[in-house]
């Protein structure tokens, strides 16, 4: 299954042609445009960068950001690092453990460590989360 028209991929590859170390920027762009980086595009990327398919696969699978399948649910990234833990994020997360309409995924630090618990949705950040505020966020995203 092709996940995207070849021409779209080619546009991205053309845009990065000749750049040093272009693989991560390319993968970011593909994921930004298609929501994931499917296996089907790996040979095209490998060919363009003159690296092996295995190398592309190795890189995609290394980084948490890259997904090989489209997300099934809307994603709320909830910071689970120490500063947010100190401010009660574990109890907050536990309260939403059964949430099925959105996927609440861990992220380790958003750099807002004095005002946690914090969450990240799309291009928006949310600080000082309480159960009520997170519930509202879930409603908004779901």
């Amino acid at each position: 299954m092709k996940m995207a028209p070849d021409s779209d991929i080619d546009d991205i590859l053309t845009e990065h042609a000749g750049r040093e170390g272009a693989l991560l920027p390319i993968l970011h762009d593909i994921q930004a445009r298609f929501g994931h980086v499917g296996e089907a595009v790996i040979p095209t990327i490998a060919q363009a960068l003159n690296i092996s398919r295995a190398e592309v696969h190795g890189v995609i699978s290394f980084y948490h950001d890259f997904h090989t399948t489209p997300p099934r649910l809307p994603v709320i990234k909830l910071c689970r690092a120490e500063s947010c833990q100190a401010r009660g994020v574990e109890a907050l997360a536990a309260a939403f453990a059964d949430e099925t309409r959105v996927s609440i995924e861990p992220v380790y630090c958003l750099g807002l460590c004095s005002v946690g618990p914090n969450a990240w949705v799309g291009d928006q950040l949310y600080a000082r989360l309480t159960p009520e505020r997170l519930a509202a966020l879930v409603e908004q995203v779901a």
């Binding site: 170390g21 991560l24 920027p25 993968l27 970011h28 290394f62 980084y63 948490h64 950001d65 890259f66 380790y108």
Partner: peptide, 8 residues
């Protein structure tokens, strides 16, 4: 600017 991809 180059952007990381989720790796501490």
């Amino acid at each position: 600017v180059r952007v990381g991809a989720g790796s501490y």
